[in-house]
């Protein structure tokens, strides 16, 4: 599989989305709605749940399954109120000492008039700042597409994991091809240039872990692995003094692109 095959797999119809991960990994999920400022963004699902016996805060970018749900979820493209809803839940997690787990699956933050009017850039920027010093363990798992700033807005974490066929990129291959070659059909070349596969990102030191995918959309083993591994990593990180946890998170990003 080349890079663009992974992009196709990440976007494929029938691939499990955020809600499936929530319902298969956690119990007692209570969804919490709204950002208390503007509204409730359906592209972001957030709430409290249990990972084994441990209460956690779960946030997922949800792109929707069938066409009707896709429209309801705005295809997983969040507005500023989505990022603010997520941040509100993260702050509550901090207050109650709950770890935060994010599932990322979005082609990007929504581009539109309302999104700009309500400060899409500011909403993401605030999440980046606040997540960096959130005093509880944070792990982000990329389950499908990781589109640029819209994905990063939920991925300032202690560790970032990716499913084998998930992708994470600064720009979509389509966008890159049309800028670079003024030809949006050269997506395959563009995808290769961008180094957006889990394997590329692991080599670049941007992610910590790749989760192998079984053939087809039978994700049972992935859910089981995630349940065990998330629990283990979080328990490990909870033992760290808070300052140590935050220093590690800071340095995780600080070291990327250090230039002499």
């Amino acid at each position: 599989m080349d890079a663009f095959d992974r992009v196709i797999a990440a976007r494929a119809k029938g691939r499990p989305t955020g809600m499936s991960f929530i319902s298969n990994i956690f119990t007692d999920f209570l969804e919490m709605h709204g950002d208390r400022r503007f509204g409730d963004d359906k592209a972001v699902v957030a709430g409290i749940a249990r990972l084994k016996e441990m209460p956690v805060t779960v946030i997922a970018l949800e792109r929707g399954g069938d066409t009707k749900e896709k429209i309801f979820r705005n295809f997983g493209m969040a507005h500023p109120e989505g990022y603010r809803k997520a941040l509100r839940q993260m702050k509550l997690a901090e207050k109650f000492g709950r770890p935060v787990i994010c599932f990322v699956d979005t082609s990007g933050a929504y581009c539109g008039i309302g999104a700009e009017e309500r400060g899409q850039g500011q909403a993401i920027a605030e999440n980046l700042m606040e997540m960096m010093t959130l005093k509880v363990p944070v792990i982000s798992v990329f389950i499908g597409e990781g589109g640029s700033g819209g994905a990063l807005g939920l991925a300032v974490a202690d560790e970032v994991w990716m499913l084998e066929n998930a992708v994470y990129s600064v720009i979509s291959p389509e966008g890159c091809a049309s800028i670079l070659w003024k030809d949006s059909s050269k997506v395959r070349e563009a995808a290769n240039c961008l180094k957006l596969t889990a394997q590329d990102l692991f080599s670049l030191g941007v992610i910590e872990r790749i989760l192998e995918e079984p053939d087809g959309n039978n994700f049972e083993t992935i859910y089981e692995t995630l349940k065990t591994e998330l629990y283990a990593k979080i328990t490990e990180n909870q033992k760290l003094p808070v300052q140590e946890l935050l220093d590690r998170r800071y340095n995780r990003f600080r070291k990327i692109g250090v230039v002499k």
Binding site: A125, G149, L152, A155, S169, I179, F253, G257
Partner: peptide, 19 residues
């Protein structure tokens, strides 16, 4: 774009420094 994901990571890095 020419620095791919590494440039995206600079957003988190700079924001962390600001924080």
């Amino acid at each position: 774009m020419q620095e791919g994901i590494l440039s995206l990571m600079q957003m988190a890095k700079t924001s962390g420094a600001v924080k």
